[in-house]
Design a protein around this nucleic acid. Structure first.
Lengths: 214, 214
DNA sequence: ACTCAGATACTCGGTCTCGAGTAATCGAGC
DNA sequence: GCTCGATTACTCGAGACCGAGTATCTGAGT
């Protein structure tokens, strides 16, 4: 059983919306989009409806009324319950106060970097750096624009966080590329040799710790 | 249809293992653990076997032999195919060269930070910072230990990346906590006022852009 | 020689996720 | 007043994911 009865972060966003006022699911989705929350919390319809249903099953939200409007599909308006408010702050506190390990695809890629040849790796890292830089640029403009509209910084901190992470990643990527290029990274010689064997069709001698040497 | 026939990163690790030599699934799992790859790529048995099956279905790996050893469950040894090798480098190149947006739970939490009261938020951010610092410490020791054993840096870069990300996060968290505490973050006054209303049972006046003001 | 923890090797079915698909209504423009 | 694309609002089934559970074997200790 997962730590929480409903574990999709989208459920937290649903609780956040309903903490403000009752809504029907589709309205939650538009609200989230308007406020840019979908940049931080994955939103898709399938999950939205199943998450609301799950929240209801656990008594964290409750249907308040179902409006039938012409022959349109009826909208069910939900409200948050007392238990839902508790769950909301508890969950949120958890997210902020307790870091959890998350698996990122770039990290996965890095851990297998040896599977590429060094020159290709450098080229790709440089490409990544360039894309990250332009994303960073875009993010900054977005933030300046929002600030101009008068949105308080408080509502833009996710962006600040993201920016910090991207900046750190750029720094890392650039340094890594450089250290492969100039051979200063410990292990590149070995790496180069392995790939030479590989393209030559020879058997590749995998790395062994001194202690594992037979 | 996802970008790749098999999209679980674990499949990439499987290809990486088989690129080295034929193996049976369980051996892949132990190999990954020995090399610490499970820190970067989520590994669990259920996924492992279904992923191998999926790879086989798409012709990226093929069973080489099934060994029956006493009355133990038989082990099926797989090998990588030519198509599998192509997929491996192509996928890996993609992971390294092209950043993708990933949803992190802390970012989700930050985007809803307004749901906590400011003083609680500060307390939780301080707590997070402390945990991150100790994780960072642990990671550094691990790395020093591995370096002492003679593992080339090349095989530890995931850790370097992670460290950079954690350091950036600590910096962000500390700055954010400070700016809430001393009130220098634009929007805290509003935030405080909202929570005052909230605990007083008054109706909370949500933030509106000047342009949305009625 | 017996026991029992730990390693080996995998299976299974329930839950969660996804996103394309459906179907009705609104409204701008001819 | 008609058409067509955008918006509103939700449904559904295929497939991914998970991790507890099963069954066997090895080997250290008594």
């Amino acid at each position: 059983m997962p730590r929480r009865k409903v574990s999709n972060p989208l459920a937290l966003a649903v609780l956040a919306c309903l903490a403000e006022r009752p809504m029907h699911p589709y309205e939650m989705s538009t609200t989230m989009r308007e406020r840019g929350k979908h940049e931080s919390i994955k939103l898709n319809y399938g999950s939205l409806y199943s998450v609301v249903e799950a929240l209801q099953k656990h008594g964290l939200v409750a249907p308040r009324e179902t409006v039938k409007d012409g022959r349109r599909p009826e909208r069910t308006v939900y409200e948050i319950t007392a238990a839902g408010r508790l769950e909301f702050v508890d969950w949120l506190a958890d997210l902020i106060g307790t870091p959890v390990k998350e698996y990122q695809s770039f990290e996965a890629g890095l851990s297998l970097l040896g599977g590429l040849d060094p020159d290709t790796a450098v080229r790709l890292l440089e490409q990544r750096s360039a894309v990250l830089r332009s994303q960073l640029q875009g993010g900054l403009e977005m933030q300046r624009y929002a600030a101009n509209l008068g949105v308080p910084r408080l509502f833009l901190i996710e962006g600040d966080y993201r920016r910090g992470q991207v900046e750190a990643e750029i720094e890392f990527v650039d340094k890594l590329a450089a250290s492969i290029r100039d051979g200063s990274l410990d292990g590149v010689d070995l790496w180069r040799e392995n790939h030479r064997q590989y393209v030559a069709g020879e058997e590749v001698t995998p790395f062994r710790l001194p202690s594992e040497q037979r």
